[in-house]
Structures are given as C-alpha cells and as structure tokens.
Design a protein around this nucleic acid. Sequence first.
DNA 1: TTATAAATGTTATATTATTACATAACGTTA
DNA 2: TAACGTTATGTAATAATATAACATTTATAA
Lengths: 132, 132
Amino acid sequence: MQKEHSLSKNQKIIFDLIDKSGGPMKAYSILFNVQKKGIKAPLQVYRALDKLVEIGKIHKIESRNAFIACQNSSCQVSKATAFSICESCENVSEISNSKLSKYLSSFSDNSGMKYSKYNLEFFGLCKKCKSK
Amino acid sequence: MQKEHSLSKNQKIIFDLIDKSGGPMKAYSILFNVQKKGIKAPLQVYRALDKLVEIGKIHKIESRNAFIACQNSSCQVSKATAFSICESCENVSEISNSKLSKYLSSFSDNSGMKYSKYNLEFFGLCKKCKSK
DNA sequence: TTATAAATGTTATATTATTACATAACGTTA
DNA sequence: TAACGTTATGTAATAATATAACATTTATAA
C-alpha cells in the first residue's frame, strides 16, 4: 500500500474539477471554472497541474494540451502512460493493458539509452463516431 | 516506389532548414532563421509545417512543441512514430524498430476502437548524459 | 483556357505557459 | 515552541505557441 499524497487546497480544487469532468480539460478552461473558488491566475492553475502530474494524479495529453485524471488506480506515478484519442469527438481514455505496458517498459534498442518513462497516444475513431 | 511529393517554395525552405539542423526545431526558431529568405509571419511557418507533417517529411515532437525531419526514408506518411528523448540534453531521435512498429500498428484492445495512427515518446538519459 | 485547388502574404488575435518577486503555511527537529 | 527549510500561494507582467480572417497569387488539371 502506498502512502496517499495529501493535496493542498488549490491542488484539491483543481484535481476534483478534472476528475469530475470525466475527460480531458485544458488549463484555461480549468482556470475559468475555478475562479469562483478564488483561483484567479494561470500560474496558480499551472502550478497545481505540474504537481498533480508529478505525483501521478493526472496526466497530460500532449497532443491536445489537456489534462485528464488518472483512470488507473494503481498508477501513483506516471512513468508509463497510454491513451486512445478519438479524432472526431476528442474523447480520450487511458489504456491499461498490462501486456502493452510490460512490452513498452522493457523496450530497449541499440541506442544505449535506458528509458525511464514513455507516453503513447493512439488515434482513431471511437465506436460511436465510426458508426456515424 | 512512391511518388515524390514536390514541395512548394516555403515548404522547401523550411524543410531544408529543419533537415540540415539535424535535430528538433521550434516554430519561432524556424521563423527567425527564415526571415532573411522572406518568410516573415508565424502563419507562413505553421502552414508549411502542417503540410510537411501531413506528407510525412517531418514529425512533431508533441511533448516539446518541436519539429524534426523524418529520419526514416521509407516513411512517407507519418501514421506510426516513435522517438527517444534525452531529458538532459534534449537530443531526440526517431526510433525505427520494425518489431515495435508492428506491435503497435496491430495493437487493439476491447474498446471497440480501430487505431489508425499512434505516437510514442520515450524519455530517459542518452549515453553521453548518463556518463556525466 | 478556364476553373479549381493549393499556396502565399499580411494583420490581428487567441491560446498556452513561464518569469520574477513577495508572502504565507506546513513540517521537522532542536 | 522557535527556528529553519520546504512547499504552496498570490499577483503582475510577459513570453511562447498557434490560429482566424481575408485578399491575392500560383500551380494543376479538365
């Protein structure tokens, strides 16, 4: 059992918002949504996001500049992330497939580089959008 | 043998710059470097970049907001990309490993989604930086 | 050659993210 | 509990990345 990281006030406000949204959120959309809670400046949002990413509570979807709550309860630190992204409706979900993560975590090539982290983004059409 | 895509004037200027640089370049650094060639506005750069990405001559390194020339001569269209990124010196190189690309191109899970494209970024320390 | 698509030029602006500096709250341990 | 170091917060300004809108020109191909 790992120690729960206790979130600060701003971190909690921002994590709860992202988590409840159920999907990816962009920084300035987050800002807009938390202004009533007293978080007024972009930097306050980015600082909380940075910390939440660091401790694995959220992940950044790099191709979308957006942040999503970790959907994988066992993932306390985000060193190995994979997402599927629908290019039509922009729905994003985290892939948790142990075969895939094992394969990638142990991947090595002849570059002499030891990989400590990866991020994988798959693109396509989700079930709903495909059938339209 | 695939048809060579013939580049327009701006596309050629910008591709040549990125290609000669040998590494990833950021859009505004590209802009700065091509101003003497008459390309004066960000949009001119972004339009060329968009096209070059579309036809697979360059790839975007999403986590760095940077663009790198395709190092894989057989890759005319970039639907399957993998990179290794050194977190210390920021050196980037394209991974061309047929096992990896086969594995990922054929990857499917139970989401009902058909993946038509992926991008994978590995992070770590390169040989040089490791030995420092 | 004419019409259609692709590329260019230009200005303005939107979006995403960081620097710099000051202050406050928290956790440890002497 | 006082003193210290660390983490978090507040605020203003600005840097870096990217797109919208519109006018014009060039290339392609029917």
